[in-house]
Structures are given as C-alpha cells and as structure tokens.
Design a protein around this nucleic acid. Sequence first.
DNA 1: CTAAATCGGACGATACTCGTCCGCTTGAGG
DNA 2: CCTCAAGCGGACGAGTATCGTCCGATTTAG
Lengths: 205, 205
Amino acid sequence: MNAAPSPRADARENRRRLIEATRQAISSRGLDVSALDIARAAGLGVGTLYRRFGTKEALLDAVVLGLYDELCDTARVYMTHADAWEGLCEFVIELAKGHRDSRGLAAVTAACDQQPSPELAQRTAALQEAVADLTERARATGLLRADVTWQDIIICSRAALDTQHCLGVDAGPEGWRRIITILLDGLRAPGHTALAGPPPRTTGF
Amino acid sequence: MNAAPSPRADARENRRRLIEATRQAISSRGLDVSALDIARAAGLGVGTLYRRFGTKEALLDAVVLGLYDELCDTARVYMTHADAWEGLCEFVIELAKGHRDSRGLAAVTAACDQQPSPELAQRTAALQEAVADLTERARATGLLRADVTWQDIIICSRAALDTQHCLGVDAGPEGWRRIITILLDGLRAPGHTALAGPPPRTTGF
DNA sequence: CTAAATCGGACGATACTCGTCCGCTTGAGG
DNA sequence: CCTCAAGCGGACGAGTATCGTCCGATTTAG
C-alpha cells in the first residue's frame, strides 16, 4: 500500500489554493460558481481543478465538508461555555458566519437529501445533536423562551444571513448582526440587548 | 386614437392567465423562470407570451409592478390602524407575504437600481415612506424598541421568507410565521407573544 | 540531467434560454 | 352560415454558459 507516498509539492499547494478559492467563491457568489471561475480565482487552469478533484462536485463536497467540520468543532467549544444562554447566542452567531461562508449550503443539503454522502450525513447529525443540546441547556436556565425548538434556532441562524445575501451591500458588510440581535432578543425570555453596528441603508425591498 | 378598441376575448383571457402563471412561477422558483416554463404553466405556447408582452422582461415588470401596487394599498390600510404597534406588525406580515409572492424581488430592484423604471421607482419611494411612517407611529407608542430604523423593519420582513425559501418544505408552508413572531418579539420593547404554528421539522442547515 | 508528474487553456459536447416565424385555428361581425 | 383578420402553438435559429477532456509545454525531484 501507500502507493502514493508524496504528491509533488506544487500539486499539494494547488490543491490548497483550489479549496481556498472555492470557499471564497461560494461565499460571495453561491454554490453555482463555474469551475472556470474557481480555477481563475485560484490562479490556475481549469484542467488542474479536474485533475485534482476529478469533478466539480467532488471539490464542492470537500469544501462543504470542511466547513461542517469547523462548525462541529465550534459547537463543541460552546457546549462547555459557562453561561448556557451566552453559549447558545455565540454559537448561533458562529453558525450564521458559517452560512455566510457557505451560501446556499442548505440547497446542497436538500439536493443531497435523497442520498447524502455518509460523511455529510454524519456531520449533519452531529451538528443537529449539538444544537439540540445547546438549546436544552439554554432553556434550562430559563433565559430561552420555552416555545422554540432547536430547529427554530437553526432557522434563526440562517435568517439574518439570507437577508444579507439578498440585500447585498445595502445592509453593510455586518448588517446581519443587527438582525441576529433582534432575533436573539426575540428568543430571550426577558429583556433586550442593544443593537450593534450602524443602521442599514436599504434602498429596496 | 383608440386604434385598438377591443382585443379579442381569448387574447385578454390569455394575458390574464400569463400574469397569473408568472406570479405563481416567481413565487415558487424565483425571478429566473424561463419564458417556456411560464407559458407551459399558463397552458399556452411561448409564442403567445411574446405576442402579448413583447419581451419576457416586460411581463415580469408588469407582474412586479402589480405586486408593488398591492403592497402600497396594503400599507395605506394599516396606516390608519387604531393600534399603531398592531398596524406595524400586521403590515410586516403582509410585506412578508408580498415577498413570498415575488421571490427575488430585491434582486430585480437591485438590478434596476442603475436605471429603475419610473413606475417602479415611484412605488418604491411610496412604500418606503409608508414603512417609515408606520415605524414612527409604532415608536411613538413606546412599544417599538428605539434603536431600530424603518430599514430594519424592511429587512425583518424579508428575513423570515428568505429562510423559508432556502429551507423549502422542511419548515412547513407557514413556517415563516414562527420566525416573524420571533422577530416581532425582538422588535417589541416589553413582553412576548406565543409562537404560532407547529414547530419546523428542519433536517439540514 | 532526465523522466515522470504536472500544468494551462483551447476545444468538443451538452444543455438551456430567448425571441421569431409561419402554417393552422378560432372568434366575431355581417 | 360565412369570411377573414386576429390569434395561437411550437418547431426552430442564434446565442450563451458550463462541464470535462486532451495534449503540447513546463516544472519538479532525485
């Protein structure tokens, strides 16, 4: 075994570049980026992309899986947060950031829903369990309103970012934080926190 | 003048059908529906679509303008609501419904931002003024938190629906109402209202 | 220095969409 | 009932975008 002991250094570097470029491309233009655009952004030819990953889908899968892994790590961190409500809030914000970096991720999940790759299914299950756990911990403190489920939490984490994507630059680069704040206040049983960031300058609907 | 006194009855009916089909198509699949799909949904040939409207863009413009007009009417109604806070809440819900029926509307607004059609620009301005007015009235009652602007209100009205579109059927056909409720609670200065509808059954992120 | 691994991007194939064209059908007035 | 202009359907051409392949040129590593 170990028939491929060490890929050439430039090949490895190009693979890294491709993944990084794909991340940024997905973040700014969604999951339907063309292979050519990704390769260009990585400063490589499209041939290299297909040689490294075989298919465009494989590249996207690798990137999405990486993001899921990071989210799993993040969840694990906030699970041990001293203040359960704070932990939930910060994780929701991190989850929103994750959505920012994998715009259209839900579309992929839905598309692969028929036959999700085992790895993706495993990560999805782990993340859901983590969110459910964080939700229960926060509810136990009495700071989270009783009538929301962990699914609601997930949806809230998306809402702000989806809006951000639709409104584009109008809401400012950090405009989603205002919506997250409003949502978290709506989730909180008592009291409110101050809105952060400058108000959005929306011009459309 | 009046060189076209009365189009044939079937032509008028087909025009109506096309507009209706376009509405539903936009609602379920966004603004980038193909002309063929619209014509098929209307039970007509694509030739008829182009004869009636000249271009696909003209058809979309007609539909979008119609939706804007309805929203303007709705705004006028809630402006005279006895309870300013209730009026704002219900209008936000109606606005969300409007977004449901014109998915991707913001994209069009943004695209036409360079040179918006005079009619659309007029409607947009009227709607913005209406939202600003409703916001101020609600703020005056002290029920609306002080740190949100009318732009925040618009964004909130989008957030729930955008999420709905991304999550698809997972959140149920009325799942957006839960998010709207959370958002409105987050906008409200004191207290909370009960979440309506069954909890979402999300399976993805 | 050499050979194998790697790269770049032109290229064929495929798919999708817009808008046109023309032979056939249908509505409505005489 | 008849006539004919108005209307209809959908095949079709043209344009565009994307995927994935192929092969000559280049580079790496021993």
